[in-house]
Amino acid sequence: MERSEMRSAIDELSLLAATVNHVPIKPFLALCNLVVQVLDKIGPTMTVLRQDIHHNIQRLENFHDNDPSIYWDVVEILKKEANEGNAKKGPTCSKAFVALKLVPDSKTLVNILKVEDEDDDTLKEEMQNLISLLMPVLEQNKDILKAYGLDKLKCT
């Protein structure tokens, strides 16, 4: 039976969650590759992000392949680059890994979306309103495309 990317991601994350102060490279890279597969499904609008993630995966894989017995863990790779003073110079594994900081945590995302002094409940209500208003517009757009036989067009 074929597993969804979501189910596969859950499996990989459960392997990573069991470790403390270590990030085993194989499950981490498997998870990253699942992200790339999801971006592929979304389509060509995600090409730049997909390529960036793919290059970062390759960088980590190449480092690991140089000596898998030492670099079985992302933390060991980061330590080596930091100790050598290379972590911030050029295209490094450290930069590839720290790129995860670009994804905000839930609290940060909520704070970005809220206006000053707005509470979480008001933001939630506004988001629900936006979604309820947006859904009919998206459905209408789909119907229009379908009416003209354009519903199977792919983005370029």
Rank of each mutant, 00 (worst) to 15 (best):
H54D: 15
V35I: 15
Q58H: 14
Q51H: 10
I57R: 07
C32Y: 01
V23E: 00
I42Q: 08
L49K: 03
E76I: 02
Q58F: 11
P68C: 09
I25K: 02
R50G: 04
L49Q: 06
Q51K: 08
L29Y: 02
D40K: 13
P24H: 05
V36S: 00
L78A: 07
K26T: 05
D40H: 11
L16N: 02
A18E: 12
Q58L: 07
Q58C: 10
K41D: 11
H54Q: 13
H54W: 10
D40Y: 12
L34M: 09
I70H: 12
V36K: 00
D73H: 03
P44W: 14
V74D: 02
H54N: 13
Q51Y: 14
T45H: 08
Q58V: 08
V38D: 05
L29T: 05
M46L: 11
E61N: 11
Q37A: 13
V23L: 08
E61S: 09
H55G: 15
P24S: 11
E76P: 01
D40L: 13
T19G: 09
F28P: 02
E61P: 04
K26A: 09
Q58M: 06
W72Q: 13
L29A: 08
D67K: 14
I70L: 14
K26P: 03
R50M: 06
E76G: 08
L49M: 06
V20D: 13
M46D: 00
V75S: 03
I42S: 14
V48S: 10
D73F: 03
D65W: 14
D73M: 04
L78Y: 06
T45Y: 01
P27Q: 05
G43V: 00
H64T: 07
D67P: 07
P68F: 13
I25D: 02
I57H: 06
H55W: 15
I70P: 09
L31S: 04
M46Q: 07
L34G: 01
V48T: 11
T19Q: 07
N62G: 08
H22N: 07
L78N: 01
D73V: 01
P27E: 02
E61W: 04
A17G: 13
T19Y: 00
Q51L: 15
N21F: 08
F28I: 00
I25W: 05
K41I: 06
